[in-house]
Write a protein that binds this DNA or RNA. Structure first.
Lengths: 136, 136
DNA sequence: CTCCTAAATAGAAATAGTTTCTATTTAATA
DNA sequence: TATTAAATAGAAACTATTTCTATTTAGGAG
């Protein structure tokens, strides 16, 4: 928790009960949609607004604690991001348990051009089954 | 146009004026959101519904004429897909003119596992500046 | 410990993007 | 030309997300 507190502080964000609860939910290493987070928070806090959840998830991304995960269902997912800040990396998620891991080995990072295009940015999302789930 | 007609036929889709118009818009090689397509179609057809545009774009993807393009702005984009059907490929888009090209050279295609995860699927979106725009 | 201020919050309402539904029309075969 | 599956418009519903306003709170300064 100290680690997260430091990250928040670095970005002038406060260490609120709401945020502690959100971070704790993510410590399971699962990915969640804003609504899933909201449903869980409502059990802990009798007052709890969905817009607040959206805001918190976004600020946690800003300070590098969470990462946005894109799936085909057009919902937003978030997961813990363990990579050092500002280091180019992507994420692989386990389709079974929702676990997220960082992938720093990126084919496109060094490429300057591809098919005549000057590469500016890219987005990679990997989906798989994690070791734990494979061994079940 | 013959080419597209054949693709549509293969999927039991009709060659309607609406679809011809949509395909023609994409022949510029640009990417468009459903709403952008709709705005352009409204000039040609006095009656024209947005749901119909959505349906058409989806069916054109189904038969391999268009590809879905993902950008960060949470809107749906579509672009012409020139790749042969069922061939694993990704897309690179020009951030300046919106041109789309296919990338068949994929680093992850042969990889079976990565970081202990058994790879199931992946999504790659490349953004760059095309040769034409670079030379301007 | 108390005051202060920027940041966080709830809740209501608005917005944006997309989908569903129903009735009508049309393309492309027989 | 008749037939029928597919395509359509338009209205309405729906879902995810954002904006707005007023109130509350965390955490540093004194």
């Amino acid at each position: 928790m100290q680690y997260f507190m430091a990250k928040l502080k670095l970005h002038n964000l406060k260490f609120t009960p709401r945020r502690i609860a959100i971070i704790q939910l993510f410590l399971s290493n699962n990915i969640f949609t804003p609504e899933e987070i909201w449903n869980r928070l409502k059990k802990q806090f009798k007052k709890c607004g969905l817009p607040g959840v959206y805001r918190n998830l976004e600020s946690l991304v800003e300070c590098g604690i969470l990462a946005k995960i894109h799936k085909i269902d057009r919902k937003r997912y978030y997961g813990l991001c363990s990579a050092k800040e500002n280091i180019h990396h992507h994420h692989i998620i386990c389709l079974q348990c929702g676990k997220v891991d960082d992938i720093s080995d990126c084919f496109f990072e060094k490429k300057e051009t591809i098919k005549g295009y000057k590469l500016i940015s890219h987005y990679i999302q990997l989906n798989g089954i994690c070791e734990g789930c494979l061994n079940k």
